[in-house]
């Protein structure tokens, strides 16, 4: 009969009303991200808390958006020293190619997703500052496998 579909529609909306809201009250409530969720790039550290990065620059070349930048200086003995590892989070598209490419597992896609900021300067991050690259330490102390 003409109109039965309309009445059925009324019943469905009412049924959904009783199902209750599905809203997640962010920021009080937060959903857990799946393991693979890709958000801001973050450096990884070894057991002693030293960055794993060897300053090989592969990630820098890999990033399609040229978001990563490593300022590396070399000491006299040829060891690499990371002056700054700059990451422009505002321009990053969280594609994960840098992490995939890093042969030393030195960076990861973290689960940090609350990236909004009031200060434009916060969109450029310095991931590592003034540390020896991992390979350098290995050369010096030989404590790294």
């Amino acid at each position: 009969m003409w109109g039965s579909g309309i009445l059925k529609g009324f019943a469905i909306t009412m049924r959904n009303m009783f199902r209750g809201p599905i809203t997640v009250m962010y920021p009080e409530q937060k959903l857990t991200l799946p393991e693979r969720a890709r958000w801001a790039v973050a450096p990884r550290y070894d057991a002693e808390g030293r960055p794993k990065c060897t300053a090989c620059l592969i990630c820098v070349n890999e990033c399609p958006d040229h978001v990563l930048n490593l300022e590396v200086s070399k000491s006299e003995d040829g060891a690499k020293h990371i002056d700054r590892y700059v990451y422009e989070v505002g321009a990053c598209m969280m594609c994960g190619l840098c992490v995939e490419a890093c042969p030393f597992d030195a960076i990861e896609m973290s689960h940090e997703y609350e990236l909004a900021t009031r200060d434009h300067g916060d969109l450029v991050r310095v991931l590592l500052r003034d540390v020896d690259a991992a390979s350098t330490r290995r050369a010096k102390g030989g404590d790294d496998a």
């Binding site: 599905i22 799946p34 693979r36 969720a37 598209m93 969280m94 594609c95 994960g96 190619l97 896609m109």
Partner: peptide, 19 residues
């Protein structure tokens, strides 16, 4: 769609820009 995107996110790591 939320349920589906959750599934896709769990597999690919992203809800929209899968790569």
């Amino acid at each position: 769609r939320e349920m589906l995107l959750d599934v896709i996110e769990a597999i690919t790591g992203s809800r929209m820009m899968f790569n």
